[in-house]
């Protein structure tokens, strides 16, 4: 039912970093997501290019 406390905390830390990166990368925004798919805002593609 539960992972060990160490793994739960590790997951939380990774998640917090992921959340900060997504917010700073602006890929959590309606205008950016929809703008990408109407081919006007290329933030999403650009932020995925290095990986």
């Amino acid at each position: 039912m539960f992972d060990s406390p160490e793994r739960l905390i590790l997951g939380l830390v990774i998640g917090i970093l992921f959340g900060i990166l997504l917010q700073k990368g602006r890929v959590a925004k309606f205008s950016v997501i929809v703008g990408q798919f109407v081919l006007k805002d290329w933030t999403v593609v650009n932020s995925n290019r290095p990986s």
């Binding site: 539960f2 992972d3 793994r7 739960l8 590790l10 830390v13 998640g15 917090i16 992921f18 959340g19």
Partner: peptide, 21 residues
Amino acid sequence: PKIGLGWMLVAGVFVGASLSS
């Protein structure tokens, strides 16, 4: 199914993105 690392990762995304904004 469990409350594991991946589950806490999602909770962390919410916390991290909220904090950042």
